[in-house]
Write a protein that binds this DNA or RNA. Structure first.
Lengths: 212, 212
DNA sequence: GGCAAACTTGCACGCTCTGCATCTTTGCGT
DNA sequence: ACGCAAAGATGCAGAGCGTGCAAGTTTGCC
């Protein structure tokens, strides 16, 4: 997610090491858990794989589940960056659609989605995954507020737009993971995203025209 | 959620006791945690309040969080029942809107929402709350499938419609909880639900007309 | 070099959650 | 009514989780 630090500041060695440790823990967690199964992996094993003490794990994450879904922060960054890169006079829904495309066409994203798929049987993982989505949604809503100058406390629009985008992404990915392999000519992920966003497009444009 | 048991079967004493214990545990968990704070409450205290052994708690729920949000199953039932009660020739979006009204006008629902509000600072509770929403969404999608006869593996519509409804509910409640008390003439919860569903209405109707 | 802040690590402790064995209750047939 | 079998409740033990605390170690900076 977006830290409120100066983005132009070159991160020092300490920051880089911290980030590296975080990534190492998160990827080790995802790799181990998706291959062996969630409950067959202990925090100690994850810490060993990342070459830190077990105690250190809890300086970064409060639970296995949190570490497993931590990679979603990368998608959130992709989404926010891509949204911010769109021209300001473009309709918000179009910017959102393009930003979603940037996410789903990122090869790393698909790898993570596939790895997480095997863990979708674990309710706690799913729960934390949804929490990550919610965080992404909040950040996106803020970006929409910044773009449109609306007041989120008075206007439902930015929250709804962000929710629609994240929901579209979630439904598209869910559907894509579901019937894949069964149907050789199944729609592509970007096409599913388009289909989902098309549903929300008209309504959101209409709402955008009526700020209080 | 809907058990696949014959609905006309009168539940025996055993079933009734089980249901009573479940409710007792869930309400004790919500009451204790919302008043004292989540981490100030142990499973043992919840079990004591429900007058069962600590071990028994885990025969019903796998964690405190799950028990705290268990009351959402009631909302899910309200939603599904209200949706099923709508006439079959009514547009699905209209049925969904009415069903959502049935949920948010249920006084018990508002009590639970308010109680849960104080726990929204705990990431694990929020995560499980979102998981409950997702379960509600899945059940609703099945109901839409049954109503429309669409194929969820091929058609995005039922999943998207259910997701839109639950998202609308979530955004409306979230917004309603946010600026309440600050603005005396804030919109009512049903009005917010209407506003959210209005955004999704046109797009969903258009999609509904183009099944493969 | 040396200081202070930040990070890592080890330790201890209470709580969570599960598997297993046992006991009690419920449902049901005779 | 009796008794059996299934289902639930309970106790116990143990592995693992998650956190506060008090070190030790590294980093940034003057």
């Amino acid at each position: 997610m977006s830290e409120h630090t100066p983005p132009a500041a070159p991160p020092g060695r300490r920051e880089r090491k911290k980030a590296a440790t975080r990534v190492a823990l998160a990827s080790a967690a995802l790799r181990l858990c998706s291959s062996r199964g969630l409950d067959a992996v202990t925090v100690e094993q994850i810490a060993d794989a990342a070459d830190v003490a077990p105690r250190t794990f809890f300086n970064y994450f409060t639970s296995k589940e949190e570490a497993v879904v931590a990679g979603n922060a990368a998608s959130a960054d992709t989404l926010l960056t891509a949204f911010a890169a769109r021209p300001g006079d473009e309709p918000v829904t179009e910017s959102l659609r393009r930003a979603l495309h940037a996410v789903v066409t990122d090869p790393g994203y698909l790898d993570r989605v596939r790895a997480l798929r095997s863990l979708s049987a674990h309710p706690t993982v799913v729960a934390h995954q949804l929490a990550a989505f919610a965080a992404q949604e909040r950040a996106l809503a803020e970006a929409v507020v910044a773009r449109t100058g609306t007041d989120p406390a008075r206007d439902l629009y930015p929250t709804l737009a962000a929710a629609a985008a994240v929901t579209g992404l979630r439904v598209a990915v869910q559907h894509w993971l579901g019937d894949h392999g069964t149907d050789p000519r199944a729609p592509s992920l970007p096409a599913l995203v388009d289909e989902a966003m098309a549903v929300f497009d008209a309504g959101l444009r209409a709402l955008a025209c009526t700020p209080a």
